[in-house]
């Protein structure tokens, strides 16, 4: 029953933004099956995320993507795109691996001035199959700068290591782990096409749902600085002989 009294002035907003970033390695070593799977899986992940948050109508997901090989640049952006309108353009592999540049580009968007004050913790998913080709000190500085930002610290940051871990042409788990905010998840090891697809979808959906759930206390115990705690990733089956291929 209406009270008949006018509602006090003050513009309301029935949505809260959630900034979502894919940070994707398209260096030469990603050519072939890896790049194919990444392109297809991200396209599949988008409707899965939309469906997962359909019961939270006040969450407004805005998506962007950074690509990096010899240099880092926007693949979709810098203007964020509402998830319902987001289209993933195909990426073709070439060049080396400028992970630090990509992280710096991400950090430049997570400043207090650029991020919406009422927003949910941003979701940042890094996909890479190799080591950063820049100097280690450059990478360390990029990570430090990201974590010095309040939004950088609170972001849900996940990393998917594509292919084999370690060695001359594998991904560097220790480095990727420095990017990861959710230590309980660790680096997601995608050594088969199936696992890569499954992890991209799982990470996209679970990170978004976790970010948009309730408030957390800052500065308690081991999760100091970490706003969002995620569930452990599912145990996607490892490859068996005669089964699907490895990267």
């Amino acid at each position: 029953m209406s009270s008949g009294i006018p509602v006090p002035a003050g513009e309301v907003d029935d949505t809260r933004p959630l900034q979502f970033f894919y940070i994707v390695d398209y260096s030469g070593s990603m050519a072939g099956k890896k790049m194919q799977i990444v392109n297809a899986a991200i396209r599949e992940a988008i409707p899965a995320v939309i469906s997962a948050v359909s019961s939270h109508p006040n969450v407004s997901i805005m998506v962007r993507a950074i690509k990096f090989s010899t240099n880092a640049s926007w693949h979709v952006g810098p203007v964020p795109v509402p998830i319902n309108e987001f289209k993933w353009p195909v990426l073709m592999a070439e060049g080396s691996t400028s992970t630090a540049q990509a992280i710096n580009l991400l950090a430049s968007e997570l400043t207090l001035e650029k991020m919406p004050k009422r927003g949910f913790p941003p979701v940042c998913i890094l996909l890479s199959d190799g080591c950063c080709s820049e100097e280690n000190s450059v990478y360390e500085t990029a990570i430090k700068n990201l974590l010095n930002l309040p939004w950088g610290k609170k972001a849900v940051r996940l990393a998917i290591g594509i292919g084999k871990e370690g060695g001359a042409d594998g991904y560097d788990e220790k480095s990727l782990l420095k990017f990861v905010g959710q230590k309980e998840v660790g680096v997601l090891d995608a050594d088969t096409p199936e696992k890569l697809k499954d992890y991209i979808i799982w990470a996209s959906v679970t990170a978004t749902v976790s970010s948009s759930s309730g408030k957390s206390a800052d500065n308690i115990g081991v999760s100091s600085g970490q706003a969002v705690v995620m569930p452990a990733p599912p145990n996607f089956p490892s490859v068996s002989p005669g089964d699907s291929e490895v990267f």
Binding site: P150, W151, K154, S216, A217, D218
Partner: peptide, 20 residues
């Protein structure tokens, strides 16, 4: 004193709440 963003807040259960 610290910029709290992204749905985090100081709390009565935080470490050293007296300082917050």
């Amino acid at each position: 004193s610290e910029t709290l963003v992204g749905g985090t807040t100081d709390s009565l259960c935080s470490e050293n709440p007296i300082n917050l």
